[in-house]
Amino acid sequence: MARKKDIRQNNKRLVQKLAVVALAMFGFGFAMVPLYDVFCEITGINGKTGRVDAQAAAASKVDKSRTVTVEFTGHTSSGLPWEFKPLRKKIDVHPGQTVVVKYYARNMSDEAIIGQAVPSVTPGQAAEHFNKVECFCFSQQKLAPGEVKEMPVQFVVNPGLPRGVRTITLSYAFFNMDKASAKKYGAKGDRASNRNHRHQVKADPVVASGG
C-alpha cells in the first residue's frame, strides 16, 4: 500500500513538471517569431534592407574603383488596383554614392486607397549593405481616385558589399492595407479587416518590413 501512495505522489510531481515543459514549448513556438526577426536582422539574410540617415549616407566614402548595377522592379498584390512600376529599370552606382530613383504609382479605381510597399533585396548577402535614406515604403501611401504619384527612393550601397556582388535587385510588393477593399478588388480570402496589424502602426521601415 505504501508503494501505491508513493507512486501517486511521484506521478503528481512528474505530471506537474511535464505540464510545465508542454507550456514552455507552446511559448517557445511564439518566441520563434522575435527570434527569427533578430536572427534575420543580424545576418541580413531575409532580403530586408538597412536604413541610414542622410548625414551618415553623405559621410560614407565613395569607392570609385567599383561599379554595381542596381535593378528595380515592383508589383502589386491582387487586391490593389494600382499601376505600379519603377521609372527606370536600372542604374550603375559606385558603392558609397547616394542615389535617388523614382517609382510611379497610379490609382486606377474610383476611391481612395491606402497601400503599403514591402521591399526585398536579392541576392540575400547584399541586403544588409543596401541602405535606404528615404523610401516610400517607410510609410503608407494614400492615393485619391485616379491620382498619380512619383515616389522617391534614396539609397546608398555600403562599400562593405562583398566583392563578388555586381548586380543587386530591389523589388517591392505593394499591398492594399484595407482587407475589405483588397477583397473587393480581387484578393482571395475571408479575413477580418486588419485593424490591429502587428507592425502597421509603426512607420519605421525596418520594422514595417521586418518579418
Binding site: 498584390s77 499591398f175 486588419n194 496589424h197 502587428r198 507592425h199 518579418g211
Partner: peptide
Amino acid sequence: GTSFFDAAGGG
C-alpha cells in the same frame, strides 16, 4: 488582424 505570416502587414 495579426500579421505573423502576412507580408502585407509586415509578417
